[in-house]
Design a binder for these strands. Structure first.
Length: 585
RNA sequence: GGUUUGGUAGUUCAGUUGGUUAGAAUGUCGGCCUGUCACGCCGAAGGUCGCGGGUUCGAGUCCCGUCCAGACCGCCA
């Protein structure tokens, strides 16, 4: 028996019990004739005591312990004379009687503490040591609980968890595929799924009615703090449903998760906001609605003003930062630099201060009278003491820049509290998006998304105006999930493929199996997929999804611990009939 | 593909206008210490300043290239 108790469970009630503990040495404190050893496992830390006077050899052995040694100790629980109220086991200690070194350890490259001294690179290389740290382990425990509660909720709602294949077929739409060569089929390749999309639809055709899966998906695109090449979705699909059925079901799931995992009761119904309004008022299809600061469109207000930057722009919009009229020149310059960064992309920033004394000061005083500025402030909803910030330029670019500015002001003013959660459904996405490069439409969500019934006639006349039965769940400005009601009729699906520029042959080659299936009685169906990693990161209160993944990859898609990807042996390539071309540097 | 920040002791970082022997903290090792729990005190070891080239009497510091890492833009149906 390696242990009778864990290192986190002994309390004052256990005094005088003989116990056996196993764990890692957190810290050895030599104190003259006595030595204290903190032994740690997943459950906590317990202090061991060795006394040189009464147990010379044992104490000497304890003095030889180093950080991260794996030890087993037999001893008696005793009440401490000096208690430590900072840890749950702080009232007791173990009077050691036997000490076994189960495994020695080299000195670790960083210390295993809550606030580690290791940088990211080191932490990733020695991830197994990083996993011993409380914050990382707690994040993964949150993730575990979430997965458990997802299964519990969906099981209660009669969903069936079904696995779908990982070796599938490459398709041209969407993200770049990860590709796997087939040894038995020379010259042919599998692709790893970007999502189980078509399989879950086929499960609906197969009569499964309610399906879910917590499943790995793969996309070979450039990475970010919130994007990994392999990531996990909570993937769901339901038959005989309309959009509201799906939204209600999964709003329930999200509320269940918040309640059971975070202890947060989200009592109100999640608001629905159209894509159009999201863009108009927030300049983003994933607005952070924890705070206001909505856009005001000002194009007309500046007509004929004489300042061509505002007058000639396709779009002029502004936000009001409350109580910021006291911003200094330096602060305003910093904001100007912020919006002019290439990543934000605005040309400049117009500000108007509505001072406490009733006066007005702006960067465009040359073009406007104070009365005009006050009128403008009224239009924007600015009060005395507020600061208006205005951007102008091409519509999409300027809305995006104003969105970035709004979020930055939200940060500066402390309006983005990580312990506050503001969920909403963004609905009525456009079905199609015009791609300037290829000069054709592509599906905004995916090619199986159904158009709104009332917009179907527009498919022939003005496809760009067609709205889809598509929706995203957004919480605190993060896209947590998205889905749609699917097309379930062969003819409409064919029409979609045609609009997307597929020939009949291409459509058949790529998706013939789906359209065949639709010929045999496909039920109306729809679903949703949630980014499990992002949701877990949000629950853990962190920005990067890497720390809710046990073994993540870096921003170049490398696993620096196992050093992959890596070259393969020539024999392997030969077997796969693969010849490498020279890599150009 | 692009923008940007960084790379100095095991680790986290400082290093001034280009100028003596590159520092601090922490960790490690040794010594002292019987109630510590961020123990304390004394001492020691520890450096290819990412790599290559250039400018200069002289480069951690300036310039060019390159590699690595982070954030972002493009990209991600």
């Amino acid at each position: 028996m390696y242990r009778s108790h864990t290192c986190g469970e002994l309390r004052i009630e256990n005094v005088n019990q003989k116990v056996t503990l196993s764990g890692w040495v957190q810290k050895v404190r030599k104190f003259g004739g006595m030595t204290f050893v903190d032994v740690r496992d997943r459950y906590g830390v317990t202090q061991l005591v060795f006394n040189e006077e009464t147990q010379k050899d044992l104490c000497g052995k304890a003095n030889g312990l180093g950080r991260e040694y794996v030890i087993q100790v037999v001893g008696t629980v005793a009440e401490r004379s000096n208690k430590n109220d900072k840890i749950p086991t702080g009232e007791i200690e173990i009077l050691a009687e036997e000490l076994t070194i189960l495994n020695a350890s080299e000195v670790p490259p960083f210390t295993i503490e809550d606030k580690t001294d290791g940088g990211d690179e080191l932490r990733m290389k020695y991830r197994y040591l990083d996993l011993r740290r409380n914050p990382v382990r707690n994040n993964l425990i949150i993730r575990h609980k979430m997965g458990f509660e997802v299964r519990s909720y969906l099981n209660d709602q009669d969903f069936i968890e079904t696995e779908t294949p990982v070796l599938i077929k490459s398709t041209p739409e969407g993200a770049r595929d990860f590709v796997v060569p087939s040894r038995m089929n020379p010259g042919q390749f599998y692709a790893l799924p970007q999502s189980p999309q078509v399989f879950k639809q086929l499960l609906m055709v197969g009569g499964f009615d309610r399906y879910f899966q917590i499943v790995k998906c793969f996309r070979d695109e450039d990475l970010r703090a919130d994007r990994q090449p392999e990531f996990t979705q909570i993937d769901c699909e339901m038959a005989f449903v309309e959009q509201d059925d799906v939204l209600n079901m999964f709003e329930g799931m999200v509320k269940h998760l918040f309640k059971t995992v975070k202890g947060v009761e989200l009592t109100n119904a999640f608001p629905h906001m159209s894509y159009e309004d999201a863009m108009k008022y927030y300049g983003s299809d994933k607005p952070d609605t924890r705070f206001g600061m909505k856009f005001t469109e000002l194009k007309e207000a500046f007509a004929g003003c004489g300042f061509n930057v505002l007058e000639d722009a396709e779009y002029v919009g502004g936000i009001v930062a409350q109580d910021c009229a006291s911003y200094t020149r330096k602060q305003l310059d910093a904001l100007t630099d912020f919006v002019k960064k290439p990543q934000v992309g605005a040309g400049g920033l117009v500000y108007i201060k509505f001072n406490e004394d009733g006066s007005v000061k702006s960067s465009v005083d040359k073009f406007f009278s104070p009365e005009q500025l006050l009128e403008l402030g009224e239009k924007m909803g600015a009060k005395t003491g507020d600061l208006a910030l205005i951007l102008s330029g091409a519509k999409a670019k300027t809305q995006n820049a104003l969105n970035e500015l709004r979020l930055e002001m939200g940060n500066q003013l402390g309006l983005r509290n990580p312990n506050e959660f503001s969920p909403l459904w963004v609905v009525d996405f456009p079905l199609l998006e015009w791609d300037e490069d290829t000069e054709r439409f592509h599906a905004m969500h995916h090619p199986f998304t159904s158009p709104k019934q009332e917009d179907v006639t527009l498919l022939d006349t003005d496809p760009g105006k067609v709205r889809a039965n598509a929706y995203d769940l957004v919480i605190n400005g993060v896209e947590i999930g998205g889905g749609s009601i699917r097309i379930h009729e062969d003819a409409l699906q064919q029409k979609m493929f045609k609009l997307l520029g597929f020939t009949q042959e291409e459509a058949n080659e790529q998706f013939g199996f789906l359209m065949n299936a639709f010929k045999y009685g496909a039920p109306p169906h729809g679903g949703v997929a949630f980014g499990f990693d992002r949701l877990a990161a949000m629950f853990a209160g962190i920005e990067s999804i890497r720390d809710v993944i046990a073994f993540p990859k870096n921003n170049a898609g490398r696993d620096v611990m196992i050093d992959s990807p890596s070259p393969v042996h020539g024999d392997q390539l030969k077997e796969l009939h693969i010849a490498l071309t020279k890599i150009e540097k």
